[in-house]
Design a binder for these strands. Structure first.
Length: 438
RNA sequence: GGGCUCGUAGUGAAGCUGGCCUAUCACGCCUCCCUGUCACGGAGGAGAUCGCCGGUUCGAAUCCGGUCGGGCCCGCCA
């Protein structure tokens, strides 16, 4: 008999069917035994009264792979309105070892228990509540891909094994590469800019590696980045608007498509601007507002402190009804060699997209003039003849239009969209300074 | 890299101003009872050298030192 999925039982009333899956829960009442089975589409209850049949499950633990064949019987008392009766049990993969964690109940996400969460990740991905997180994550990615593809962005893949760290900023991982030393890409920055020369608009969703010894709730050593780059932009605003619109679009869809799951995960209410425009404040303005409101002093004005990020997000949510806010016009002191500078006001065309208290994307405009690039690289003390820059500079020498894009933290987006406390909770198998397994 | 915290059955917690601790509770597990459970219920049972090493003490889960492993914050970064 061919397999029927749990979600299709509603259409099979009074038919004899076979369902296959994992043992989810046994509730043995003596003569009356309720067995729930989980498959990819949900969980279903079966009623087993035959002593010989229920005996087949004696000593078998949650997770046992089995099939149940029986009559789909409508019954108001059954979850989902129907259950299997006159059931034959067939065990496919018996599990006799007691699982180290309880799979059929919500798993603790308290910060002090996260180590247990990840130690038994292989098992807790079977937990229904845990599965919701990663289904929402999959939907977020699908929505982003759909949005970008619709807007004529071409998805690309670029190498993660590199000869040399080039972008600067974050620390890089080094590894043996035959008789050379290779590094792991901390960003596809150079490659995506090069590809603007081909398609104008490109994006990549891939892992980025950061060797920062950061032990916080928002850092991992391996993180999934969405990188976007678009050419022939009319200015910084167009890039900020595109990334903002994509984010608003994605969050609205997720909150509508996964309303029940988000509610059961205690996600906060989503607040987005009704006009579709993410509110913007300059870095200088945020420093000023923050210092005036909190009486704190910000020592290093190059960037926002974590506390300022939280503060401006709370302000935007409360005063402007927006969970998203842009911090724009970074000071020249923060500029990297590839950034486009605004010489008129001494700032960089660079905005950070903040969401519910953390930075989820950096959204800058790039310098696209070859001569200026070379100058800015020399200013930064970089060797423009170095192999690491040679190919990158070729793209500029042979013509790149004005362009900009973003480096976008997918894990942070998922984390904050659901309202999780730690970025690792939004990641199946997180990598941080002290975890390389599972 | 700096600061602050935590470590007790498989899991989550209580105890931790030293002795009523032969270490408590909940979930899970095992045995038995139970014909409408859905966090099933009831009776019983097994399961912990209190992270590790050393010290103080008549006596240490409890105090002290070291060590290992977590977590949170800062810095750095996305």
């Amino acid at each position: 008999m061919s397999r029927v999925l749990v979600r299709d039982l509603a259409t099979k009333h009074n038919e004899t069917v076979t369902i296959e899956g994992w043992l989810h829960k046994k509730r043995l009442l003596g003569g009356l035994n309720f067995i729930t089975l989980r498959d990819r589409s949900g969980i279903a209850q079966s009623l087993i009264e035959d002593k010989d049949e229920i005996e087949k499950l004696r000593g078998l633990q949650i997770g046992t792979v089995f099939s149940l064949t029986g009559m789909v019987t409508p019954d108001e008392r059954a979850p989902g309105g129907a259950e299997l009766h006159d059931v034959k049990v067939e065990v496919q993969v018996p599990v006799t070892d007691e699982p180290p964690i309880e799979i059929d109940k919500p798993i603790s996400h308290k910060s002090e228990n996260l180590d247990t969460l990840f130690e038994y990740r292989v098992l807790n991905v079977r937990n229904l509540q845990e599965q919701k997180i990663f289904k929402i994550r999959a939907s977020i990615l699908a929505n982003i891909r759909e949005y970008l593809t619709k807007n004529e962005f071409v998805e690309i893949q670029t190498p993660k094994l590199l000869a040399e760290a080039t972008e600067g900023g974050a620390e890089v991982f080094k590894l043996d590469y035959f008789d050379k030393t290779a590094t792991l890409a901390q960003s596809p920055q150079f490659y995506k800019q090069i590809m603007v020369g081909a398609y104008e608009r490109v994006f990549e969703i891939a892992a980025a590696y950061r060797a920062e010894p950061s032990a916080t709730t928002r850092h991992m050593t391996e993180t999934m980045m969405l990188d976007i780059e678009m050419g022939f932009v009319s200015g910084h605003d167009e890039v900020l608007d595109t990334v903002g619109d994509m984010t608003i679009n994605t969050l609205n869809r997720i909150y509508s498509d996964h309303a029940n799951d988000l509610k059961s995960l205690n996600a906060p209410e989503l607040k987005l601007p009704s006009d579709g425009k993410v509110p913007r404040f300059t870095i200088a303005k945020i420093h000023e507002m923050y210092e005036a409101a909190t009486k704190n002093t910000v020592e290093d004005k190059k960037d926002l402190t974590p506390d300022e990020e939280k503060w401006i997000c709370e302000y935007a949510r409360k005063e402007l009804g927006s969970d998203l806010v842009y911090a724009t016009e970074f000071p020249l002191a923060a500029a990297k060699f590839y950034h486009k500078r605004n010489v008129e006001n001494g700032t960089v065309y660079w905005g950070d997209l903040l969401f519910r208290g953390v930075e989820i994307a950096t959204v800058p405009l790039r310098e696209n003039n070859y001569q200026k690039m070379v100058e800015q690289m020399k200013e930064a003390g970089l060797d423009v003849t170095h192999e690491g820059f040679k190919y990158y500079l070729q793209a500029f020498k042979y013509g790149l239009p004005e362009h900009g894009g973003c480096g976008y933290g997918i894990d942070r987006l998922v984390q904050k969209a659901i309202g999780l406390n730690n970025i690792k909770e939004a990641t199946l198998f997180p990598r941080d300074i002290n975890r390389l397994t599972p």
